[in-house]
Design a protein around this nucleic acid. Structure first.
Lengths: 228, 228
DNA sequence: GCAAAAGTGTTCGGGCTACACCCATGA
DNA sequence: TCATGGGTGTAGCCCGAACACTTTTGC
């Protein structure tokens, strides 16, 4: 600090990459800006850090404001700080990513903010470095999903094994053997089997499960490592 | 952004967690501040983001200014942004961590900046949330070392297998079987065996190796995954 | 010749992979 | 009854873990 004497404040933005899973596909929530700058273009959900707000809190508020959800899996992704990233003025942006259960969010609220869900294929170009942010978030999600049970954040509370498998297949862009997958995931002992079946996708119906978070946390304390 | 209308600039600091390995122990570089605030206390190397500098560049400059080194492994760790983290004014800090080869850095330069290397055990209390930053950097280092060959960043260009093993043992705070370790690491095919021996630590001497970065990168392209 | 570190091969068991048949039920 | 998706067991293989003796050489 004897080196950098000058203290010049800069603007700090927050941007949020919001993932959802709609039973078949991974989707991302972006908004069409009806305000300047870049009005009419698509961008991530964002805002500015307020001087009296913790960074993490600020990010949670941002998300809640848009989706009506609180208590969401959300994690800081990266701070983007190239000089020219915002053509207007110098703004650095702290990006967060969130995983939400699609059926729990407030669809009307999202629409009222011009929010729209896109799959990766359909994703329009976004402003500034927001495309880059999404790419980084995707990498992180894939990486993280390998060694932490975060998939459940994207599914309803009750889900079937085939649903869970499909989610992981979509995330990792691959296919798993049904038998091996269910063996592996059940062997972890972190799923509670329910006495209900989900009969929407098949005639026989598939058993519903819940993620047993308490059990998982207890296991982690004992050195347990989730790994797909 | 229709939500957060106010744009109030805040100060953005940079802090750097610098790791080194001195043949036996993992060490961290911190400095004794001879300037206010918190003069006389220990802190991470830090500075402020300048409005005309990219964030990453700024961090590299910071490191180079202190150690005389450029072209260093350095990665953004996390952005710390609690309101009260700096008791003076609102400052958010983007923390980076760096891995350096101890024997290459400019020791005099470090001393002239009141820099000192500490092992984790001897580490004094640091100002603000700098202790937390170190903990997070350690976790990241451990995590990252598992699936990326970053250990070599902490060793001299030429090193022996036993040295490499010790480094990984220190990072992961465990012991490995000598036979299994060398088998595993050599089987990756990313080490070049040299025709020299290092005879400092044993009478027989141990063969020196180099990390074959080109080969590693070529393998990565083909889908190779380093894993310890 | 002895102490201290380096180098190396084999065995065993557990986990991952590959693979196929039966079950339940709505139409 | 048939088509569709759900559920489950087994055999082989590979990889990781455990383990001990020989080599070199400075003293």
């Amino acid at each position: 600090m004897d080196f950098y004497q000058e203290k010049k404040p800069v603007l700090v933005a927050l941007d949020c990459i919001i993932f959802g899973f709609d039973k078949k596909e991974l989707k991302l929530l972006v908004i069409k800006r009806d305000f300047e700058p870049s009005k009419g273009n698509w961008s991530l959900v964002g805002g500015f850090l307020q001087p009296d707000e913790d960074l993490d809190i600020s990010a949670k508020n941002l998300l809640q404001h848009l989706t009506g959800l609180s208590n969401i899996f959300m994690e800081q992704l990266h701070c983007f700080g190239n000089v020219q990233r915002d053509p207007g003025e110098r703004v650095i942006s702290v990006a967060y990513y969130a995983l939400i259960k699609l059926e729990e969010h407030d669809q009307e609220l999202v629409e009222s903010h011009n929010g729209k869900w896109f799959t990766l294929d359909e994703m329009p170009d976004l402003i500034f470095d927001h495309n880059e942010m999404i790419m980084k978030a995707l990498q992180r999600l894939r990486q993280k999903a390998r060694y932490q049970p975060i998939g459940f954040e994207l599914l309803p509370d009750k889900f079937t094994i085939p649903e869970l498998q499909l989610l992981y297949e979509v995330i990792h862009q691959t296919n798993f053997d049904r038998r091996n997958f269910s063996k592996k995931i059940l062997s972890k002992g972190i799923l509670k089997k329910l006495n209900e079946k989900q009969k929407e996708t098949s005639k026989k119906g598939a058993f519903l499960y819940k993620f047993d978070k308490k059990k998982y946390e207890a296991l982690v304390v004992k050195g347990f490592n989730f790994e797909l």
